[in-house]
């Protein structure tokens, strides 16, 4: 582990930096489901007895910020490198979720064009009764510019 990355890890990993209330709109996740090609009516039909969001829907829920306010500026442009979701319990129409974000991992890979820094931001989602219903990870890659 490079010293500069270890220092960032020590300072920022697992420190919550954002909390947001998210109102879940059934029409929004029904349209998401149809556009993505879901056929099961429990994801597309608000009148279905078990109407719920498909597990991947939580990747569309975003916080107020993706990194801590005092996170250092890295020397490169960030790009969306991937999304991961973990389903724990159903998310339904008109639920109010609380999204709590922290940096879950910071690591590097070095290729022919130099070092790439990966930042994994995790939003943990909780229902109104405090049940942990899902995790949504965003993986950002910063391809560092050559110095000098």
């Amino acid at each position: 582990m490079d010293d500069d990355i270890q220092a960032i890890r020590d300072q920022f990993l697992n420190q919550e930096f954002d909390e947001i209330k998210l109102e879940i709109d059934g029409q929004r996740f029904a349209e998401y489901s149809k556009a993505c090609g879901e056929l099961d009516e429990k994801y597309t039909d608000p009148n279905h007895a078990d109407f719920q969001a498909p597990p991947t829907f939580v990747a569309t829920l975003v916080g107020r910020r993706n990194l801590p306010e005092d996170f250092p500026q890295l020397n490169g442009v960030g790009m969306d490198a991937g999304k991961a979701v973990e389903w724990i319990a159903p998310i339904r129409d008109k639920m109010t979720l609380t999204g709590k974000s922290h940096l879950h991992d910071i690591y590097t890979k070095t290729g022919r064009s130099g070092r790439m820094v990966f930042l994994v931001t995790r939003m943990e989602l909780y229902s109104e009764d405090g049940t942990h219903v899902a995790n949504a990870d965003t993986r950002t890659v910063i391809r560092e510019r050559p110095s000098g």
Binding site: Y32, C36, G37, E38, A59
Partner: peptide, 12 residues
């Protein structure tokens, strides 16, 4: 996020 949704739909 839509590409990821395609993957979920394929599984379902």
């Amino acid at each position: 996020v839509m590409s990821q949704g395609f993957l979920g739909a394929m599984i379902h």
